[in-house]
């Protein structure tokens, strides 16, 4: 498989996963915001922070209100991680690898991008947002299903799984971070359980379709420690960091010349699974911990690029 093509497939998967996660995040945040009393101010800017694009946001907007944040996260093309940008990039990547993926994959991504582009105005309106984003999520899932069911599980597919799971691990870890720290503008007092924290954590679970799964597997009332543990360390739940990293590893194990990325992935898995969540939250070190995990993920990405994509190494 060509290095250049492998890289595009990897990015295709990452961008589609990114679009889906961003859409999920906004949808669940929207729902929780409607439940909140007027006195508690929810920070939409917190969502922007999750995607690590605050700097670009600040360049373009002064007001950090809902409208601007949602527009930025969904529609703005100068935000490289917005839903529309991600779909556009995904489309470019699948367009240039059409000879490798089932042709329906191109049709799905192409139509999804055209749908998003043509409906973007209602997609960022308060009322049109939910159905719009839900449609995007469903189409992303259709693509995932198509690739799983109709594409040979060869090296190209390994790069799909690699990209998807690494992006997912990245996004989930970001959301844990935000849940822990950034959603509430005022610092919550840990000894005074806030009545609405439960709602927030529920929202984070919902955004990962994890609410039901949490209920079935954790069987306790929603609380910060258990939710973080679930999203970080649960193995059966496919959107948990530990699960995603495990599948990153599985994909990488099937690829040639994989020593370096493999070593880094195992290290990240040890970090994620070995963490004592109780202690991290108690000592107020969860944010630092997530930072380290994010660095791990970034390092894995760099070693993937060096090992399989960099055109200079081969000659």
């Amino acid at each position: 498989m060509l290095s250049r093509v492998a890289e595009r497939i990897y990015w295709l998967a990452r961008y589609v996963e990114r679009a889906e996660n961003t859409a999920r995040m906004i949808n669940s945040f929207q729902l929780v915001s409607l439940d909140m009393p007027k006195t508690i101010e929810l920070s939409w800017k917190g969502l922007v922070a999750v995607t690590g694009t605050d700097a670009i946001f600040d360049e373009h907007y002064q007001r950090e209100d809902e409208r601007n944040c949602v527009k930025f996260l969904v529609a703005d093309l100068y935000n490289p991680s917005s839903v529309l940008s991600s779909l556009k990039s995904a489309r470019e990547n699948v367009r240039t690898t059409r000879d490798l993926v089932p042709s329906e994959a191109w049709e799905i991504v192409n139509e999804m991008y055209l749908y998003a582009r043509d409906n973007i105005d209602s997609g960022i309106s308060k009322r049109g947002r939910y159905p719009f984003l839900t449609e995007i999520i469903q189409r992303c899932q259709t693509l995932t299903g198509l690739l799983a069911g109709c594409m040979s599980h060869d090296a190209a597919y390994d790069f799909v799984r690699l990209g998807r799971n690494l992006e997912r691990a990245d996004m989930t870890s970001r959301q844990i971070d935000v849940g822990a720290i950034r959603f509430l503008k005022r610092d919550p007092d840990p000894d005074d359980p806030q009545p609405y924290n439960g709602l927030l954590w529920t929202s984070i679970l919902r955004s990962q379709s994890g609410f039901q799964m949490y209920r079935q597997h954790v069987k306790r009332r929603i609380n910060g420690v258990d939710v973080v543990r679930f999203l970080l360390q649960d193995i059966p739940f496919p959107r948990a960091v530990a699960h995603s990293l495990r599948y990153v590893q599985e994909a990488v194990e099937r690829l040639p010349r994989n020593e370096m990325p493999l070593r880094l992935i195992m290290q990240a898995r040890r970090h994620a699974q070995g963490a004592d969540v109780d202690e991290l939250i108690h000592d107020d070190r969860l944010h630092d911990f997530i930072d380290t995990l994010q660095l791990d993920i970034a390092e894995i990405h760099v070693s993937i690029v060096d090992t399989w994509f960099s055109l200079d190494q081969a000659a």
Partner: peptide, 15 residues
């Protein structure tokens, strides 16, 4: 890339 043996090669994930 054309090698020293004057054969044509592609850069792939296997080399």
């Amino acid at each position: 890339v054309v090698g020293d043996d004057d054969c044509v090669y592609m850069r792939t994930i296997n080399g």
